[in-house]
Computed example of a mutant assay.
Amino acid sequence: MTQWTRGIVAAMLLGLLLGLSSMAALAQEVAPINVNTADAELLTELPGVGPSRAEAIIEYREANGPFESADDLVNVSGIGASTVEGLQDQVEF
């Protein structure tokens, strides 16, 4: 491999690493979503929550009052323990 090729490969790897590190920083800066006040559109930003689950969350909280913890979400139709586990750090009450 020529020195020129090594330089290009090194520059590409450096760019990739810098891009990945800035993506990780962005992921850490995302504020948790309040499931007691969020609308359906905002709720769909949560992993594992699509439009139908978002509506189910809203219907459940309107019928039963506010959620007190992430564990309460298992009471919503279509949301299981594994989904709740993935939401722990991304929701607030």
Rank of each mutant, 00 (worst) to 15 (best):
S77Y: 04
Q28V: 14
S82D: 12
A63V: 04
A81R: 02
A40D: 08
S69G: 08
S82Y: 05
P51G: 10
G7K: 13
Q3V: 15
A11R: 14
S69A: 10
I58P: 10
E68C: 12
S21I: 15
L16M: 14
S77P: 13
T5L: 01
Y60Q: 13
E92F: 00
S22A: 13
G78L: 07
G65S: 01
D72R: 12
G48Q: 00
R6D: 05
L43F: 01
Q88F: 10
I57T: 06
L18D: 14
A27T: 13
N64K: 05
G78W: 06
W4Y: 10
S22W: 14
S22P: 08
E62T: 07
G65R: 10
D39Q: 05
I58T: 12
V76A: 01
S52H: 03
P47R: 03
D71A: 12
E62G: 09
G15F: 09
I8V: 03
V74C: 01
A31H: 13
L73C: 03
P66E: 09
Q3T: 07
L73V: 06
G15P: 12
S69E: 14
T37M: 03
E41S: 07
G78Q: 03
G7I: 03
E85D: 11
R6N: 11
F67W: 05
A40S: 06
G78I: 09
A25F: 15
G7D: 10
R6A: 08
V76P: 04
N75H: 08
A38T: 04
E85S: 10
Y60E: 11
T44K: 00
R6M: 06
A38V: 06
V35K: 07
V35A: 07
I79T: 06
A70M: 05
D89L: 11
V35N: 08
S52K: 07
G86R: 11
M12L: 11
A11H: 13
L13F: 05
I8P: 05
T2V: 07
N75I: 02
L42P: 00
A25P: 15
M23K: 15
V9Y: 08
D72N: 05
T83C: 07
E29A: 15
Y60S: 03
Q28G: 15
D39W: 09
L20Q: 10
M23T: 14
G86V: 07
Q3L: 13
E41P: 00
L17R: 11
M23V: 15
D72Q: 06
E62N: 13
A25D: 15
